[in-house]
Design a protein around this nucleic acid. Structure first.
Length: 771
DNA sequence: ATACATACC
DNA sequence: TACTGGTATGTAT
């Protein structure tokens, strides 16, 4: 009668269900008692049973691993050891201790915001979330074992007086914006991890900071005491506020002194700079942050946890300090090593990073290359010293948990709803993707995903639903005559067009505009390095940083007159009646997408009939062709052609231009746009050139959109079009126009800073692209 | 390419 | 009563 679950309950429960006291604020509490309550509250639930099942899967994985381990011969190990040492040596050679990386993390962020805005909560144990799930708890509540990712009803058992506050994400986002403004003063290219967390590269800031006068390092306290300030109060404006770019010193020393009040002067060291940043965060938001300072991201992340809350920790940039630090580090503290990896490593007798180093040869035989390379880096205290710019998103999804849903019609209508929500989000970012994934979780918490990749990208609710509903129907069929008893459904879209398959040309443009750091170090940097070197010789690269992509009115001379209330769109060249740059940018986006994409055709797909399950066979093949039909309906021939490279079969494209991206203007020939690679149905060079301009503008603006935080400088558009010249000239001129849209700022202090892109002749810029 | 698992906040 | 939601990536097939 013993089923697998009940026989292994006793040994299986701990690692998955038990309290995770890994995080700050969890020291010295009664773990056993807490775990007992957690277990008692959970036992017997479907969730618990599923956790047991997963636990067993992990145990099996471990058993398999141990078997493998038992079969390893002395010889293999020797060989592995040699290999490991080679790699270690190579990694060691790449070690870079010259960067100063900071990881900042707000303390109990959501909870802290709620406490700030509701003093009642100050001295109570509280958490943000719901009875079903908590996202954060304050430090008071943590003493009871209440923590993030714990369901509220269990937390209540642990701490009956716990106050649970529903989340207010808009507010958190607003606070997040405030702290990010401060981050940007120390590293304009900082990388946000979440609303409350970011990585910053302080290296450049520190260099500049050395020559700053004291006045630039002086910051005013909001009140004389940094303690509890009621309400939102007038936050004293911080220095720098209005000069995110160039000179940070706004106030003269007299100004500082004249305004009176309490001041704090910060030094020029890293510690002081980071302390200053945290101070400013606290002055501005009444919330505290913790920070870790280290020579790479991996270490900085660990360090920020070290003196939490409201503290910071510096790991000196010496190999010795790093190695000492890492030896003592429990593997679980490392970002990327979670519950399961920890358990597997533990099974091998590995709990700290020193063990990790000792067992490397073994690990190289038991784990995949990516895994053991990661372990190796961790054990050597290596990590990324280059903070990559935020990557473009790779997927977008929406999912919802609900109480049991078993009726087919309800499942289908829910699916449609999700698709509508997703489509709405997609629209906001103007995305289209080719892969649709349906996610289902049944009442036993078993998760399934079903995906289908289309030939063309989709974006609208109808298009997505056309696919998702078939995936769903397929699952319903599979399960029948039993119904699907669902507790969650989700829809995801991925494989966006315009990321990979689009244009190496664009990459060159952006690569040129933003070559990034030139520091060489770490295997993780090799890729960046390689990419860079394709276009530049490493050290000689000027580090141009994009400043703003906003376009100013052409007629700036009318500044004082009453007529200056409009801006000229560089795409349609019409006046836009606004001075709001956001509005104006939206207009340009609109213009660009209107010109480069066919207008949407309203798709009245089978929305009604979709809600009935077709009882006939619904095999995958049929599903696909249905989807394709749907596709064809939604995207008329021409639009499909403009969507991507699947246009090869199009009869209007002559067979002889397969690989030649350059336009030719021979008599009677058809021109191919070097950007979108599509044949242009014209022989008119002016028309063709206009098309290329649009393409380029769209690409560059699309790429740069969202990369810049503070629009500062702008420039006017000069309409300098080439007509009747050779094809290369077109491209160059077009690129020049496109480059001319932008204003650059040179961050490198070694060279003068041209205010306008006029200083960037085509000789400096375009020539490089075409090499 | 698909499915599932792990990880992070 | 009640155990999330969003994104990325690794592993296995």
């Amino acid at each position: 009668m013993e089923n697998g679950a009940s026989s292994t309950k006793e040994e299986g429960f701990l690692s998955r269900m038990a309290l995770n006291d890994n995080k700050a604020g969890m020291e010295g509490l009664d773990r056993d008692k807490i775990n007992k309550i957690i277990m008692e509250t959970s036992k017997g639930s479907r969730f618990y049973e599923n956790e047991l099942k997963k636990e067993q899967q992990v145990n099996q994985r471990i058993e398999k691993m141990m078997l493998q381990k038992a079969q390893i011969t002395e010889q293999q190990l020797k060989k592995a050891q040699a290999q490991v040492e080679r790699v270690a040596l190579e990694l060691e050679r790449s070690r870079d201790l010259t960067r100063v990386i900071v990881h900042v993390d707000m303390d109990a962020f959501y909870a802290a915001v709620e406490m700030r805005d509701c003093p009642e909560l100050k001295d109570k144990p509280m958490a943000v979330g719901s009875m079903s799930m908590l996202s954060t708890s304050n430090y008071h509540a943590r003493k009871f074992g209440v923590r993030a990712a714990m369901p509220g009803f269990i937390a209540k058992k642990l701490c009956p007086n716990l106050v649970i506050v529903p989340p207010n994400f808009d507010k958190y986002r607003a606070v997040s914006d405030e702290i990010r403004e401060i981050f940007a003063d120390y590293d304009p290219h900082f990388q946000p991890v979440s609303l409350d967390e970011a990585y910053l590269d302080f290296t450049d800031h520190l260099e500049k900071r050395q020559s700053w006068p004291e006045s630039c390092r002086t910051h005013r306290c909001r009140t004389s005491s940094t303690e509890a300030v009621p309400e939102v109060a007038n936050l004293s404006p911080v220095l720098f506020e209005d000069s995110p770019s160039s000179s940070p010193c706004l106030l003269s020393p007299e100004g500082v002194r004249a305004s009176g009040g309490a001041f704090e002067v910060f030094g020029t060291s890293v510690e002081e700079a980071v302390r200053e940043m945290r101070f400013r965060i606290e002055q501005k938001t009444t919330l505290t942050a913790s920070a870790g300072i280290a020579p790479n991201m991996m270490l900085a992340k660990v360090c920020s946890d070290k003196n939490k809350p409201n503290g910071q920790y510096v790991l000196p940039s010496t190999r010795e300090a790093v190695m000492d630090f890492v030896q003592a580090l429990p593997v679980r503290k490392v970002s990327g090593i979670g519950k399961v990896s920890e358990k597997m490593l533990n099974a091998l007798g590995i709990s700290s990073c020193s063990h990790l180093a000792q067992q490397m040869a073994l690990l190289s035989l038991l784990f995949s290359e990516t895994s053991w390379h990661h372990f190796m880096q961790v054990s050597l205290g290596l990590g990324s010293t280059y903070i990559p710019r935020h990557e473009e998103r790779k997927s977008m999804s929406t999912e919802r948990t609900f109480k049991e849903l078993s009726k087919v019609e309800e499942q289908l209508s829910l699916c449609r709803e999700l698709c509508e929500d997703l489509a709405e989000d997609m629209k906001k970012e103007d995305l289209k993707g080719k892969t649709v994934t349906l996610k289902l979780k049944n009442v036993n918490f078993e998760v399934k995903t079903r995906a289908l990749t289309l030939q063309y990208a989709v974006a609208t609710a109808d298009e997505i639903f056309a696919v998702a509903k078939d995936l769903l129907k397929m699952e319903i069929e599979n399960e029948s005559p039993q119904p699907l008893r669902l507790r969650l459904m989700g829809v995801r879209i991925s494989a966006f067009v315009g990321l990979d398959d689009k244009k190496p040309l664009q990459k060159s443009i952006i690569g040129f505009l933003q070559p990034g750091k030139t520091g060489s170090s770490g295997p993780t940097q090799e890729l960046h390095q390689k990419l860079e070197n394709e276009h530049f010789s490493t050290r000689s690269v000027l580090t141009w940083h994009f400043a703003a992509s906003v376009i100013t009115p052409i007629d700036t001379d009318a500044e004082n007159s009453s007529v200056s209330e409009s801006l000229t769109c560089p795409v349609c060249f019409r006046q836009v009646e606004t001075t709001d740059l956001n509005v104006f940018n939206r207009h340009i986006d609109q213009c660009l997408s209107n010109t480069c994409r066919k207008p949407d055709h309203s798709t009245d797909s089978d929305s009604e009939s979709d809600l009935e399950l077709e009882s006939k066979g619904l095999d995958k093949h049929r599903g696909e062709s249905e989807v394709e039909k749907q596709e064809a309906k939604n995207y008329p021939q021409e639009a499909q052609r403009s969507l991507k490279n699947h246009s090869q079969t199009d009869s209007s494209i002559s067979a002889d231009n397969e690989t030649a991206p350059q336009p030719r203007n021979n008599k009677g020939s058809i021109l191919t746009c070097p950007v979108c690679q599509l044949t242009q149905d014209t022989n008119d060079l002016t028309v063709f050139n206009h098309h290329v301009d649009l393409c380029l503008n769209q690409e560059v603006l699309h790429e740069l959109r969202g990369q810049t935080s503070s629009p500062i400088n702008t420039l006017s558009v000069t309409k300098s079009k080439a007509t009747g010249e050779c094809s290369y000239e077109f491209s160059c001129k077009s690129l020049f126009v496109c480059v001319d849209f932008l204003t650059f700022r040179r961050d490198s202090p070694s060279s003068p800073c041209p205010k306008r892109s006029k200083g960037l002749g085509p000789h400096n810029t375009i020539d490089k692209f075409f090499r």
